[in-house]
Design a protein around this nucleic acid. Structure first.
Lengths: 203, 203, 203, 203
DNA sequence: ATCTAATCGAGACGGTACGTCGAGTCTTCCC
DNA sequence: GGGAAGACTCGACGTACCGTCTCGATTAGAT
């Protein structure tokens, strides 16, 4: 991502000679992108539409991002940055329950569409897939695993496979979001938590 | 789907007077579509390519299907029709294990790409979404639930929520397939089975 | 033209064994063709439309005519068959005047569109061109020339070039019809007659 | 015509802010169109072929012209722009003879095909018809009539109808070009001139 | 009274051109 | 040198028409 290189350069105080990047335009582009994806999905969001809504030009977009996917990816990253971190109540089941409730609230809210869009786009574009994993999936897993790790040997079995646990609780949520065969309710989340915990709890 | 209307008409003996639809061409089109999706994904599969590979003309495709998505949907439906049904070994855990192994084999095999493609396409196209559910998700769930139902009160808790169970075991598999953060191995499947069963088993 | 062969065969009483050609359908097809050309021009007249309007099938059309142009050509031939022949008043100028007036009435009438259509089609299709000449241009010229021939040495100069004369009087009429820069009136026709006669008359 | 609006804007110095139209591409497109029409006629000239030969894209063509006909019309206009004007020898018959010889040379030359194509296309498309008249027929007539006007009262009768005269000399030429029943030779042209002049000359 | 061959209406088929739309690039002027 | 405007290439989309074909149903002369 060009942006990363540039950000690093700017942190080091090495500003180029010409006019610096218009940060306002950057924000407007990312916002426009996000809104359009929310409203219409990934494929129906055109770069022309983003440019127009942002009051920017396509050239500006393509100067800073290599393609449409990259814009939307960064938009996602920004949107996701300030997400509620893992709770720490002391109780394993309570931690998980709260975490999942927050997560479901996110998915079923205005932003849910974006995640659907990204999972979709990831199937056709390896780069999107990689970024989606790096920006969204992996960080959340890392934090969540670290939080659960503290319960190991207490509520959690000594030999519990946390990767498996992660998939066991997040997988069904994504599944309902994407397949849409059943609604993604809090009741479902709670019941799921119970089942999985029953299988992983220390006895 | 136009095809349905026509099939019904034929069942009623109302064959229509003109030249009948070329069933061979229909098959070739669906096969070509399937192969191309497997090879290149949903978006990269063009109608021109389908037509050429099927030895058909684009006009024929658009006479019978309203758009590219519809062709691929029907191709999926055909491909999926003859899938392995639910096993019945007498043991709950064995039933689930075998079922999941078969399923994983399907997803990781040649056809897996198709499912990824469809889940992706479904996010951008409500019709694809509905068809995907009706053709793939729901029928499999119905069969699997019926099979598990026989264990209720025996290995399975009296009050077990089968819809929840379905999502608990299929969700993580789809998740790994789609997110791709970890491989979809048999080891994972077996471990997952165990965890979920532990949570749902009658004690 | 297949029709010719067949007509000859029928005149000789050699009817085939199968179902004979449906003459009613033939008439309806030619009529439909004519009406459509009049209404919409040559290019906009589709074979499907002809078939539908005639209550015939495209197969029937293509069984009897090699292509769309041939249908329209024969339609023209039929329409033109019963045209007013050359008048014979005894006076050269009167003969020409009457002949041209009739001709202009034809061109500016409902059928005028057809001639425009054919001249147009002839530019893109040598076969149409040839047929148009053979069916329309040449016969009329032959009759008209024969009629004028009787005036040679009397009102008409001994050395008058009748081919030239033909073009000199018909050319401007077609020109106005096709180019449409000025209306094709009787006044124009009469004036034209006068000018040309002045140039060709015996003095 | 979009081009006209733009040209006016440029004349007013309102150059617009974006990338300007690629005039080279425009020229190449029109040239390609002309060459293809000359080689294959109006109908057989495809937009894809024009685009390929011009090294342009179809999108560019359709950005500036609403359809194929419009491209060819403008191509004709450009081609026709620098045609030989009316000669002025002082002699009426010489003026006409030279003018007609030049005209016949044009029609029977490489460009003749284009005129045939346009007269044809004009019959199916009113817009083509109007443009053909405005761009080709009318300007030539205006110039030619002005040139002949100078002879009025001298070689030319006081009451000569120049519109009639125009049609009387140009009509037969177009007629032979379009109907093709006889070749369009210089001999014919000269003889025609003589006949018409005989009818119009002052005596 | 069948049998046989050609015709008919209906309509699907392969091919080919059309005109449209989106992605990503490039070019101009302005700041 | 960045940015807005907007033209450009490429390539897929879905539509329309041509001329061909394949059905079942008709219609006569031949047997």
């Amino acid at each position: 991502m060009t942006t990363l290189v540039r950000e690093q350069a700017e942190e080091l105080g090495q500003r180029g000679r010409g006019r610096p990047r218009d940060e306002v335009a950057r924000k407007r582009i990312l916002e426009a992108a996000l809104e359009l994806v929310e409203a219409q999905g990934f494929a129906a969001t055109t770069t022309d539409a983003i440019a127009e809504r942002a009051g920017a030009s396509k050239a500006t977009i393509y100067r800073w991002w290599p393609n449409k996917a990259a814009v939307l990816i960064e938009a996602l990253r920004e949107a996701v940055a300030q997400e509620t971190p893992m709770p720490e109540t002391g109780s394993l089941s309570e931690d998980i329950r709260i975490q999942l409730r927050n997560f479901v609230k996110l998915l079923t809210g205005r932003r849910g569409r974006i995640f659907k869009a990204f999972v979709a786009a990831a199937q056709n574009d390896p780069e999107v897939a990689e970024t989606f994993r790096a920006v969204w999936i992996v960080p959340r897993r890392t934090i969540a695993k670290a939080a659960l790790e503290r319960h190991r040997g207490r509520d959690l079995r000594e030999d519990a496979d946390l990767d498996l646990l992660m998939d066991a609780i997040y997988g069904p949520l994504y599944f309902r979001l994407l397949a849409g065969h059943r609604p993604l309710t809090e009741k479902f989340t709670d019941a799921l938590t119970e089942v999985v915990l029953e299988g992983i709890r220390k006895r």
